[in-house]
């Protein structure tokens, strides 16, 4: 028998004494790293879109219609000049550069994803805090949330966009609305648990104003599950935006969104399948990155929730 490895033992003991902080666990997670890096790259693409060898996504040239990927052709600039351009991912039936449109489409998808997730988070938190703290409003609010949840999310978004007509802000709001109830329920459930904690009772006993208890004692303790929920909301918002555009009920067709590019490409899908596939690949990879990030955050930040799923 060999001598016990004291060094290893002491490391184990130290690990028991000093638990990893949530932030350390998050940073160590492979899923979080992968998702965060992929997302950072996408954000980089969105910001740097004009400098990535793209042309204005609205530019077209009648002579460069339906080019295959990699083909060179001409494109007319806004000043009316005709310049030589390589269509990396081919061109659509108007002679627009698919590559430029897909790259610029990143901006819309990320804006909608982040915008809708933030909006649903803010409104959900306000409603959830109200519901968990103002007991007489709870019944009514929760019944309304049940009602919203009973209508399939895409239908709410479609109906709201139809009612308000398209525009980036409209689309963001329409997509955020069906995501609110899940946040509200989550916050409400957390508030109901947290308000029984000794430190909240102590704060109440000390005569701390309700608003201060809500925002500085209860809200910070709901952060972890909320971040996780917001990430998943972001992924589903990106998907729903693409679906709305694809169905022709989202943003106007002249705006380059992945859904719009696919909707235009589907008409000639048999001859030019790449017009559908390239934006589709970008869309799927983006949603995948956000979902993997969400999975990683859930496993590290919110172990209770991780066990439930």
């Amino acid at each position: 028998m060999s001598a016990p490895n004291y060094e290893a033992l002491s490391v184990e003991a130290a690990a028991v004494v000093r638990q990893q902080t949530a932030w350390e666990r998050v940073r160590a997670s492979a899923s979080v790293r992968f998702g965060a890096i992929a997302l950072a790259v996408l954000i980089g693409i969105a910001i740097a879109a004009p400098w990535l060898g793209t042309v204005d996504p609205a530019l077209f040239d009648a002579g460069s219609r339906d080019l295959l990927p990699g083909k060179s052709g001409e494109i007319t600039t806004l000043e009316g000049e005709t310049v030589q351009h390589t269509f990396l991912l081919g061109s659509d039936s108007f002679g627009r550069d698919i590559y430029s449109r897909v790259i610029y489409g990143t901006r819309i998808s990320l804006a909608v994803g982040v915008g809708a997730a933030t909006l649903s988070l803010i409104l959900g938190v306000l409603l959830g805090l109200t519901s968990g703290y103002v007991r007489w409003l709870d019944g009514v609010l929760m019944r309304v949330m049940d009602g919203v949840m009973a209508i399939p999310a895409i239908l709410i978004a479609i109906a709201l966009v139809a009612a308000w007509r398209g525009g980036l802000l409209t689309v963001i709001v329409a997509i955020a609305v069906p995501e609110i109830p899940r946040v509200t329920r989550l916050v409400r459930a957390l508030v109901l648990t947290i308000r029984e904690e000794p430190y909240v009772e102590a704060a109440i006993a000390l005569g701390t104003p309700t608003r201060k208890i809500m925002f500085s004692h209860i809200l910070p303790n709901t952060a972890a599950p909320l971040i996780v929920q917001a990430t998943f909301n972001c992924a589903s918002a990106i998907l729903v935006e693409a679906i709305l555009s694809f169905l022709g009920v989202g943003l106007p067709p002249d705006i380059p969104t992945w859904g719009n590019i696919m909707a235009e490409g589907r008409v000639q899908f048999v001859e030019y399948p790449h017009n559908v596939f390239f934006p589709g690949i970008f869309l799927a990879l983006t949603v995948l990155a956000v979902n993997i990030l969400g999975d990683g955050l859930r496993d590290t930040l919110d172990p209770k929730m991780a066990k439930r799923v």
Binding site: F277, V287, I292
Partner: peptide, 18 residues
């Protein structure tokens, strides 16, 4: 399962049609 959640229905539809 994660990929199934991420791939949009219409992208998958076109891959299968193709």
């Amino acid at each position: 399962s994660v990929m199934g959640f991420s791939i949009p229905v219409f992208v998958l539809a076109y891959i299968l049609i193709w």
